[in-house]
Measured scan of single mutants.
Amino acid sequence: TEVDLHLGDITIKLKDVSEEIVKRAKELFKNGWSAEFVKKWIEEAVK
């Protein structure tokens, strides 16, 4: 499945990412993480 994760003005296309990771990524962004950091976190999380 593909998900578009909207973080501010940046959209990250996610492939084969669990709902849990998407939820967590949104929380991290809301908590002040930059979109770049969230993207890196996701990449690490799906390895």
Rank of each mutant, 00 (worst) to 15 (best):
K15V: 14
K23E: 13
K26D: 03
V46Q: 09
D4R: 07
I42R: 00
K47R: 14
K23C: 10
K39V: 13
G8C: 04
K26L: 15
I10T: 11
D4L: 15
H6L: 11
A35T: 06
V22R: 06
K13D: 06
D9K: 08
K26S: 09
D4T: 14
G8N: 05
T11Q: 06
I12N: 03
L7A: 02
E36W: 07
K40F: 10
L14A: 03
K13G: 06
S18Y: 05
K39L: 15
L5K: 02
I42M: 05
E2W: 15
L28G: 03
K47C: 10
V38W: 02
D9R: 09
I21E: 01
T1F: 10
E20W: 15
E43S: 08
K47T: 11
E43T: 09
H6M: 11
K15T: 14
V3Q: 10
K13S: 11
I21Y: 04
K23M: 15
E44R: 08
K26W: 15
E20C: 12
K26Q: 13
A45D: 01
D16W: 12
D9M: 11
A35N: 03
L7C: 05
K15S: 10
K13R: 12
K13I: 11
F29T: 01
I21L: 09
K39F: 15
L7T: 02
D16L: 05
D16E: 08
L5N: 03
D4M: 12
A25P: 00
V22G: 02
E43A: 12
A45Y: 11
S18D: 12
K13H: 14
K15Q: 09
H6I: 15
E2K: 06
V38E: 00
A25S: 02
R24P: 00
S18K: 08
V3D: 08
E2L: 12
G32S: 02
E36R: 04
K39C: 10
A45I: 11
A35W: 15
A25K: 00
K30C: 06
L14S: 02
K13N: 11
F29E: 01
G8V: 03
K26R: 15
K23R: 12
E44L: 11
E43Y: 14
K15L: 11
R24E: 08
V17K: 01
A35Q: 05
K30Y: 10
D9Q: 08
G32I: 01
K47P: 04
K39H: 07
V3I: 14
L28R: 01
E2G: 07
W41S: 00
K23G: 07
V22L: 14
E19D: 14
V38Q: 00
T11S: 09
A25W: 02
L28P: 00
S34G: 07
A35V: 13
L28Y: 08
E44T: 09
A25E: 00
D4Y: 12
E27D: 08
E43L: 12
E36I: 08
T11H: 09
A45P: 01
E27G: 03
K15R: 13
H6N: 08
W33S: 08
S34R: 05
D9V: 09
K13M: 12
S18L: 08
S18F: 06
E20S: 10
D16I: 05
N31H: 13
L28E: 01
L7Y: 04
K47M: 14
E19T: 10
L7D: 02
K30A: 15
W33R: 12
R24Y: 15
E20P: 04
A25Q: 00
K30V: 11
V46T: 10
G32P: 01
D4I: 15
A25C: 03
L5P: 02
E36V: 08
F29I: 06
L7V: 04
V3H: 11
G32A: 02
K13C: 11
V3S: 07
V46M: 14
I21G: 00
E36M: 12
E2V: 12
N31G: 09
V22W: 12
S18P: 14
K40N: 11
E20K: 07
A45K: 09
S34I: 05
V22T: 05
E36T: 07
V17P: 04
R24N: 05
E44Y: 15
I12D: 03
K47S: 12
G8S: 03
A25H: 00
A45L: 09
E44I: 10
V22N: 01
F29G: 01
R24A: 12
K30E: 11
E27W: 15
L5F: 06
I42Y: 02
L7R: 02
D4C: 13
K15C: 08
K15M: 12
L5C: 04
E44V: 07
I21Q: 03
I21N: 01
E43H: 08
I12V: 08
K40L: 14
F29P: 00
E44F: 15
K26E: 09
A25D: 00
D9L: 11
T11L: 09
G32W: 03
D9N: 13
K47W: 04
N31Q: 14
V17G: 02
K40Y: 12
K40E: 10
E20I: 08
D16V: 05
L5M: 06
I10F: 12
E36Y: 08
S18T: 07
A35G: 05
K39I: 15
V17M: 04
H6E: 13
V22K: 04
I21S: 01
G8I: 04
T11C: 08
K15G: 07
G32E: 01
D16K: 05
E27M: 14
L7F: 08
T11K: 05
E20V: 09
V38N: 00
E36N: 07
W41L: 02
E2Q: 09
I42Q: 00
K26N: 08
N31L: 15
I42G: 00
E44C: 15
E2C: 11
V46K: 07
W33H: 14
T11R: 06
L5V: 07
S18A: 12
I12R: 02
K39T: 10
E20R: 09
K30T: 12
L28K: 03
L5T: 02
K39A: 13
I42T: 02
A25N: 00
E2S: 12
E44N: 10
H6D: 09
G8D: 05
D9Y: 06
F37C: 07
W33F: 12
A35S: 07
I12E: 03
E2Y: 14
E20D: 13
F37P: 01
K39R: 15
W33L: 10
L7H: 03
S34Q: 04
V17F: 04
I21D: 02
E19S: 07
S18W: 07
T11Y: 06
L14P: 01
V46R: 06
L7M: 07
D9T: 10
E36H: 07
F37H: 11
W33E: 06
R24C: 11
D16P: 03
D4H: 15
G32F: 03
